[in-house]
Design a protein around this nucleic acid. Structure first.
Lengths: 192, 192
DNA sequence: CGGATTTTTGCGCAACCGATCCAATACGGT
DNA sequence: ACCGTATTGGATCGGTTGCGCAAAAATCCG
């Protein structure tokens, strides 16, 4: 059955994810990936394929971990507005962390690659639709209980929340003003 | 006075801007820039400096043209909500154009470079603060005339609009659904 | 017309890129 | 113990990268 692997597959993928996350796709060399995983070049390509395939695996890994955290926050019990607040505050915490993070890997990927690489675009969409569905079902639940306004239907309200959410993360990259960002969250919630 | 230049400086910078816009910084080679401008490699570096300096000039060029269009839209006469709508609809038109555009160069730059290159970060901030100031003075004017709600102060309202605006452009890259995006705009305006 | 100055042109360099090849290695099965 | 098999480390491939050098070309000035 061959020589046993010296590395843990998910651990390696996590390292790869963080490297791509921090530097982006083009700025990351295969040697960077070898160094961050502690693996050799041939072990990497033997286990996961070429650089692009490795990037797709990293995006999938992000989806399975970080995206999952976001959707789970929206599925918690309790007031819907609290869940949305938790989602956005958690994003602020990540984006303003010290040492400074690189925002959201999927947003970075959508800017750098999604318009040129269809497979990346598909992987990016996987994340966006997952978050969208979680937001929508949370808002719909809030509308049933009367906590959320019924001025607009759930779909429209969802897009409204999503635009504020992703825009918040754009602003966080440029103006790391925590109180201002928290203000955005409360302003949004007050109008739901 | 030396040999006369064969190229138009702003025309060359515009070509450089479009190339960086389309492919991003890392994925653009100096040869790509030479081809898109019709200039030689040494002419480029002689006139503008190295690749990174050229990128900064391209960002500045974007600021002077595309950013200016956005701020001017907000300084037009007439109802403030119409101006904000024009701003956002114009962004939707750009992001959903055919052939598909690459969104907003400054947003791309902020994702790819702003967290590693301080000079790029500064150039990016120049754009964001210009748009922010234009939005703020428009909203403040609307609050004076009573067109815009006074539930929140102008600064808070500005950040709210900005987050929706930039989030809209993120969504536009992933889900090019024009009616959904227009819905976001109207939902936002209805709550101002 | 010739010297000074600036741009253009063409070529080349050292470094790096992604990807692959190959021998050495470490296991399970027989 | 031996063989098949999968992984490992290291070397290396052709190609591309950003950048620079030197000579030619085109203008102005005296």
């Amino acid at each position: 059955m061959g020589r046993p692997r010296k590395f843990d597959e998910t651990r390696a993928l996590t390292a790869v994810m963080h490297t791509f996350w921090q530097r982006g796709y083009e700025a990351t060399s295969t040697r960077d990936l070898a160094e961050s995983t502690g693996m050799g070049l041939s072990s990497l390509s033997n286990a996961f394929g070429d650089k692009r395939r490795l990037y797709l695996r990293a995006l999938r890994r992000y989806y399975e971990t970080n995206t999952a955290v976001q959707t789970e926050l929206l599925e918690q019990p309790g007031p819907v507005k609290d869940r949305v607040r938790n989602l956005m505050v958690q994003a602020i915490d990540i984006d303003l962390a010290d040492p400074p993070s690189s925002g959201c890997l999927i947003m970075n990927a959508s800017m750098e690659m999604a318009n040129t690489d269809p497979e990346v675009a598909q992987e990016v969409r996987r994340h966006f639709t997952a978050v969208e569905q979680a937001v929508r079902s949370a808002l719909a639940e809030g509308q049933r209980t009367g906590e959320i306004t019924r001025d607009q239907d759930a779909a429209t309200l969802t897009h409204h929340v999503l635009s504020s959410y992703y825009g918040l993360r754009v602003l966080a990259r440029v103006q790391p003003d925590r109180t201002a960002l928290l203000n955005v969250v409360e302003t949004l919630l007050a109008k739901l």
